[in-house]
Nucleic acid binder design. Structure first.
Length: 885
DNA sequence: TGTTTCACG
DNA sequence: ACGTACGTGAAACAT
């Protein structure tokens, strides 16, 4: 039995477009020898490999648009009128994509006066009639109208390597209409991005409702007179011509004068010879490797590096050489506070010296060399390396290039802390940690020592090879001082904080564990009694059944798996049944018990301390994050949880915990970068900012007239502004109507016009540049700002507004931490900086130094950067973290 | 491994 | 008309 024939049809233009924006942030890294960009080509090919593997087509065709004018522009001259011009960097890649498809054995085709859609429609129609299966790949949802039992339309989601499959069933499920009714829907609602109008005030929801009732645009107008009088009816009648025209524009031609026959499209695979040459010209190492073709050995090739033994003699050579060296200290395991060192390798760029014997760290000249700040070193992850070496009694200094930090600053999406992944971004092949060590139960150090040392040598070579290019990019982005003066010095400060650790009284936690356990058991019992049965209260599913089926409480919100039982839902059900409050109490206590009281104990080391790990290269805004355990979310808002802080104490008695936090940094940053006069005035005069906002948006004459409720609402509005406000979000947060919320926002922007201007300008900036930045030039790329999808695009806009604010605040405290550490050393103080929680620093301090720090810490913090408004710092201290607030 | 919930700024 | 606040990490359950 011969297997059924299958035709693969790809929408060349829309997929190239998506491929280009999917890899827009690495645009400058993908350039071939002739200076032509290759990012879209690379992403397109990546997608192609996956599709060919999954689909195994017998026939294939990639269709392209022929030019600007088509039969549609003939019908409606504004068709696609407002569409932005294709960027030059993509234009230059389109011929390359066609060339590559040619070598991959796939036909390409374009037809004057027709769009790629019509070619695809026509060919898929022909193939179906011949009994073939068809798969269509596109970035454009409109093509889903072509789905039938034999034709599946796969639409790219998130970049190009993932797709969503549209069969007729799936279209029905998602939209509630059949694929061929999509053109009726588009006729009624029009299309913003193709710039054709529909019927006024008719969107997706209304269109679908009408179609379900009348079947089609024609059906609607056959019965429009019978409809009862309404605005909708009026609009339908007024825009009848538009509806019919738009339906025509949306309809893909299934009978375009395409000259090719199905037989011409047979797919026989790659022309390996030509393709290999092409990949070489494009610098596509990854694809070359996949082809399994032997490569020329060049200086850049990473395989087979001769590694000499790092012994006493080698060390003499290294330490007597004044040139910079690359250093690899390999720990095995995620948590470097406990991971063993399994290998050390040092290279001057030519020779590689490595060993798996950590006894070498007892060599005095090596120790001195490591801690000598005049001996320049390159590495990947300074903080990790410092912490590892520290446990083996070595200090480290003299780092000038940390590839991890640079890679993160260049693109905050490169946050996976894996050198193999960074290398891949630069088109250099290096196994990732997972690829080399394996994962899950299979994860292990290779038995063959040579294999391990070779891997370390490859890492060293990658660092060495990419250093100059990455530093140049940093400079081109104007980010060199962010790196030199902030992130690199900060990595040392963070290492010291982590290594120092914070002391925890386990006995205190044990005590709490017992008392919470008793309370939980009590609440549990009453819940079972009131519910009339025993069940797992921690299971949202079981709880849902009890609340909404057994007790028949009204369903407020659903999740994709069932009933939502989150706090805001339960809060609304509190009066309906006494069980609800009990469940809320249970949840609260149970969270504290499992995550903190029990959870934290697991992290207390034999030195009675917790050593967290700060991730310096994870967040998209420049903030730190803290793991194993997270010490940035220790409870404070509710008293039961706040008790946890009593277990955090100074390491010596007679010492105290001292904390200092910035007051409203984010709003001060906003006042600074927006330049808003009224907001700046409020901070310059040190008014209560939320009361000031309340006074202005409620149109009062003085803050004396502000009621507590007004202040609360104004405070929420201020937060909303920082987050990139929406009326709905604000209304949910303070429990007012959406209309009221909208009025608040409008009034806010009237009162603070500078803020309004900032919000508009920053979104425009993101659209034009593809990224936004902080006061210290930290960047965040926002490719979604161009998305066709309303939600995705809106999210990117809110991010554009929020990131410079949150990120600049992060910049400021980072500077303050570095200056603080310097100051503690300079003044010979014993106090230790232990923790950072986004806008506050926590120290342990000898009682004798409290008075000094009360002056010193605020002065260092508020002078970290010079803004147009003052920074304000508040301090507190006490026997435990609980009392230092 | 993904989803839901909830702790923090 | 669309469907929402920004940034995180961890525990528990369900699959």
């Amino acid at each position: 039995m011969s297997k059924n024939k299958k035709l693969l049809l790809i929408d060349g233009n829309s997929v190239s477009f998506r491929a280009f924006f999917a890899m827009h942030n690495v645009l400058d890294k993908f350039v071939n020898g002739e200076g032509i960009h290759t990012n879209a080509l690379y992403a397109f090919n990546n997608m192609l490999e996956i599709i060919l593997k999954d689909e195994k087509p017998t026939h294939a065709l990639v269709a392209f648009d022929a030019g600007k004018t088509t039969f549609r522009t003939e019908m409606f001259d504004e068709y696609k009128g407002t569409r932005a011009k294709t960027p030059q960097e993509l234009m230059e890649q389109l011929p390359l994509i066609q060339e590559m498809l040619n070598y991959r054995g796939i036909k390409t085709y374009e037809l004057p006066d027709y769009e790629a859609d019509d070619i695809i429609g026509t060919m898929s129609h022909k193939a179906e009639k011949d009994g073939m299966d068809v798969t269509i790949i596109t970035g454009d949802r409109d093509l889903t109208q072509l789905a039938t039992d034999k034709v599946t339309v796969k639409v790219n989601v998130k970049g190009v390597t993932e797709t969503e499959s549209y069969t007729p069933e799936h279209v029905q499920e998602k939209l509630g209409i059949t694929p061929n009714q999509i053109i009726d829907m588009k006729g009624l609602m029009g299309d913003n991005s193709d710039h054709y109008p529909g019927v006024e005030k008719v969107g997706e929801k209304t269109a679908i409702k009408l179609i379900n009732e009348y079947g089609s645009v024609e059906g609607i107008y056959d019965h429009v007179d019978e409809m009862k009088k309404s605005k909708l009816k009026e609009h339908l009648i007024n825009d009848k011509d538009k509806a019919f025209l738009s339906k025509k524009l949306a309809t893909i031609d299934l009978d375009a004068p395409v000259e090719i026959k199905l037989g011409d499209l047979e797919y026989h695979g790659d022309d390996e010879e030509q393709l290999m040459q092409f990949y070489q010209k494009m610098n596509f190492k990854t694809f070359l490797n996949r082809m399994d073709v032997p490569q020329e050995t060049t200086a850049e090739d990473l395989a087979d590096i001769a590694v000499k033994t790092l012994d006493d003699k080698a060390i003499e050579t290294i330490v007597s050489d004044s040139k910079a060296h690359t250093l690899i200290v390999e720990g095995f395991g995620e948590n470097y506070h406990t991971a063993p060192i399994i290998g050390i390798l040092i290279s001057d760029g030519k020779d590689f010296y490595g060993t798996t014997d950590f006894a070498i760290l007892e060599n005095e000249s090596l120790k001195n060399w490591l801690s000598d700040k005049t001996k320049e070193k390159y590495l990947f992850d300074n903080k990790r390396t410092i912490a590892l070496l520290h446990r083996y009694g070595c200090d480290l200094a003299g780092i000038s290039f940390d590839m991890l930090l640079v890679s993160y600053l260049l693109d905050s999406n490169d946050n996976k802390q894996d050198i193999g992944l960074v290398a891949k971004n630069y088109n250099v092949n290096l196994p990732t940690e997972e690829e080399f060590y394996g994962k899950g139960v299979k994860k292990a150090v290779p038995e063959d020592e040579k294999l391990l040392l070779n891997f370390l040598a490859q890492k060293a070579q990658v660092i060495d090879n990419l250093k100059d290019q990455m530093l140049k990019e940093l400079k081109d982005n104007d980010q060199d001082s962010l790196y030199d003066e902030i992130e690199l010095p900060l990595s040392i400060v963070l290492a010291e904080m982590e290594i120092k650790g914070i002391t925890v009284e386990v006995s205190k936690l044990k005590e709490m564990e017992n008392s919470f356990a008793t309370r939980l058991a009590e609440i549990e019992k009453t819940i079972y009694e009131e519910a009339g049965k025993e069940f797992n209260i921690n299971s949202p599913k079981q709880l849902g059944v009890v609340l909404f089926e057994d007790l028949k409480l009204p369903v407020i919100k659903k999740t994709k798996t069932g009933y939502s039982t989150s706090v805001d839902v339960l809060e609304k059900l509190k009066d309906k049944s006494p069980v609800v409050q009990k469940v809320l109490d249970y949840r609260q206590i149970s969270k504290i018990q499992s995550t903190y009281v029990v959870g934290l104990q697991k992290f207390v080391q034999p030195d009675n301390k917790i050593h967290t790990i700060y991730l310096q290269t994870l967040t998209q805004t420049g903030r730190l994050s803290s793991i194993e355990p997270n010490l940035q979310n220790i409870p404070i808002r509710i008293d039961e949880g706040k008790q946890i802080r009593k277990a955090f104490v100074p390491q010596h008695k007679d010492w105290e915990i001292f904390s200092a936090d910035y007051s409203q940094v984010e709003l001060r940053v906003l006042a600074h970068i927006s330049g808003d006069e009224h907001m700046q005035e409020a901070f310059n005069e040190d008014y209560d900012i939320h009361a000031h906002t309340a006074m202005r948006i409620f149109g009062l004459n003085s803050t004396d007239e502000v009621t507590p409720n007004m202040r609360r609402q104004a405070k929420a509005t201020n937060f909303g502004i920082v987050y990139g406000i929406s009326d709905y979000g604000l209304s949910q947060n303070i429990g007012i109507s959406r209309k009221q919320a909208a009025a608040f926002i409008e009034s806010y922007f009237e009162q603070y016009p500078g803020v309004k201007k900032y919000m508009d300008d920053i979104v425009k900036y993101a659209r034009e540049n593809g990224y936004v930045e902080t006061i210290m030039h930290r960047r965040r790329y926002l490719p979604d700002i161009h998305s066709k999808n309303f939600n995705v695009r809106n999210f990117a806009q809110r991010t554009a507004m929020n990131t410079p604010i949150q990120g600049s605040a992060a910049d400021i405290i980072k500077v303050a931490m570095i200056n603080m550490q310097k100051m503690l050393n300079k003044e010979n103080l014993q106090a230790n900086l232990l923790l950072q929680v986004h806008d506050e620093m926590i120290f342990e301090v000898p009682a004798s130094e409290i008075a000094t720090l009360e002056k010193l810490v605020p002065s260092v913090m508020d002078s970290a950067v010079k803004l147009d408004v003052p920074l304000k710092v508040e301090t507190a201290h006490g026997k435990t973290w609980y009392e230092a607030k």
